[in-house]
Write a protein that binds this DNA or RNA. Structure first.
Lengths: 220, 220, 220, 220
DNA sequence: AATGAATGAGCATTCATTCAT
DNA sequence: AATGAATGAATGCTCATTCAT
């Protein structure tokens, strides 16, 4: 599966049901065949994602989400047990999305460095394409001190790849979380920076930052 | 100024008034000369910092802060206009602290790389020593989309240093925010990682990560 | 009509339609002739009765009742106009049941005292046999101050019997409601007490309490 | 202490602080010396008692209570942890009141029967004087199936007296809860009856009912 | 008749803030 | 300066009821 086809599957529900549409295209009509199906669950998650980005995790209420999703407040509780589980579900969808992207981009028959550059670049592009994603990830995963398990959901497949590379002496002999920090930290920061200034405009720039991160973890 | 002398200046208020004591040493006696003065303002900020780390920015109330600081709820409003300004004041204190550290550690007569390694390492050590600092920075600066001005308070003095280095061809020809992302992103990520696992234990490790970040931004 | 035959008529609807089955025998088959008809109305009332006993009148929702009755929430509104009327219907069924019992047990050719002892004892046994009945009666009839009409539905046939006995000088010259209080008050209290402790275990005990109540109202 | 002085102490708080005024006299000025003290806690309990009687335990909301007590909704939570504890506190106050009355009226040097008649009559008068009391007791103690401990708070001192009388062969050899049922059941029922009809009008009537109850439990 | 998603008013409770003391 | 009782708007959530299927 290539990157282009991924866009079609952005934010796939765990049961393969589209839950919320891309930020740029809120009126997805995939679920509205015959003008009947209204994807309320997707609308709720999409509204929550938009509002968390705008007002922060502690700045949104269930009423705000309902209004943004254009449904009644009580409807959220038809689809989710409570606010906490709704946000957990949203986080889960986003991390699944990223993890899926990583898995699909990895080519076992290519050099690790080439894989790294490609995956890192595509994740960055995905983040920049819908900045609500990294924004939500950052706020949710670190909103309280006991969210470690949520943090670990993200980039799980990357752990395996990095471990092999370290064993092969390709990357520095550092603990995996340390290597992840050198990779994912700049990723999140760069997305934030793009909101404030104009750091990345052309595709070529992405590769420069990917190379920079590679320099950080490379054994040589 | 060396690192030791820094401890005396930890958390200095912008108007040079000590607002809250070091995490390890909550009973700072500087404001308690003559055994009379109780630093209520500092106690409030210190309590807020502790609780935000513990329960998240959206998990604390003014009452909780008052209880943690062992004062009455109304007293907070004697010292701060409202919750928002109290948190802004806290953020300001912390960023001032970090910026001051950077300025004091910079030696114009040393190599830029040596300055970088030293400053980056000491900032990381400071963050790890009182993790409430990076924790609060992260939660506060990105809690809503309009906190850009707060984000820019942090690392202001670094901009000047980086700009010179870029002009000298020492670091990559990238926009300053991009370079900052490659430097500060891993910093924040590493601190977070240390809470979950045991990434950094010895001083020597810090230098490895500092070198890794240097590799990321270095022109060569 | 004797007690045994009563079981067949437990919880008869006022329009002579079985609404809910006996607590001990939830799968009454009377309404299920030809294996087709499912007594949803009876299942709803039976579920409501069980849940009111368990969680109190203010502790149950229509959804809980639907779940207990194993039907959809909306189905309740097929059979009842709203919650209020459903509960009124339940109360009506129960009082009809008790009133029917009283009427059937009365033998005009026996001594009033003997009739009293027998009827009082059988009502008590009926209450103890399915404590949900007195429990619901008590909670429903006194849940608000304007339920007087509901209260008066209960023991209506007893009024006639007592009036005659008073005229005959057999019982004390007190207002009928006063005599009812001396009779039905201990009845309800005893049922409650049996839930907390082990007041009544053998049949012989019932007669002792019946005699005690007779002593309370007897003219001598 | 005689009955008259009791009226002054109706609904005494456990810490001897008047919490709510008599139903007939809602504007007690005892706590409003110097026009300063506003007994908000008492006003809340008084409002709750009135409304439970009027609309039933499940018919009142915290907002209704606040409005009846003429305070803000949030104020209730200044004085009580939550609704449950507020109601428990109200029940506790009322049962304390009744238990205190029983203890004060008992004269060890009089015949048990005389004590019984007097105490029973005075409790009935107290109930009739403020019918909100028995109304609330009845609704609260049996609102759910796990309120046994609350039920046992009521009439605790009566248990001791009855036990002695039974040992002396003065009353029937029945379990104490059974004797209580024969005594307290009619009490509650009579109060209810007085609301619907005109059962008791003169003081002399009370004694007739007291004698009737005595006949129910008397050994002879 | 039966369903269950959807509704929105209403609920208990929390909370930032005020103000009389 | 410090207090903490009081406030009332706002919150997360529940629930009786409706209605398209």
């Amino acid at each position: 599966m290539n990157v282009r086809s991924l866009n079609k599957n952005l934010y796939i529900c765990q049961i393969n049901e589209r839950s919320f549409s891309n930020g740029q295209n809120n009126n997805s009509n995939i679920m509205q065949v015959r003008g009947k199906v209204k994807d309320k669950k997707g609308a709720i998650l999409n509204a929550a994602l938009t509002l968390v980005t705008k007002y922060g995790l502690h700045g949104i209420s269930m009423k705000m989400i309902a209004e943004e999703a254009d449904i009644a407040a009580g409807t959220i509780y038809v689809h989710f047990k409570n606010k906490e589980e709704m946000l957990a579900s949203l986080f889960s969808n986003i991390t699944s999305e990223i993890n899926l992207l990583v898995e699909e981009l990895y080519s076992p028959d290519k050099l690790f460095k080439d894989n790294f550059i490609r995956i890192w670049s595509e994740v960055l592009k995905t983040y920049i394409n819908d900045q609500r994603m990294p924004d939500f990830i950052n706020q949710y995963a670190y909103s309280a001190s006991d969210n470690r398990s949520y943090r670990e959901q993200l980039l799980t497949p990357v752990y395996g790849l990095l471990e092999q590379a370290r064993r092969d002496g390709i990357v520095k002999q550092l603990p995996l979380p340390g290597l992840i920090a050198l990779i994912h930290g700049p990723l999140i920061s760069l997305v934030r920076m793009t909101r404030d200034s104009d750091v990345l405009s052309k595709d070529i720039d992405v590769n420069i930052y990917a190379e920079a991160c590679w320099n950080a973890i490379s054994a040589h």
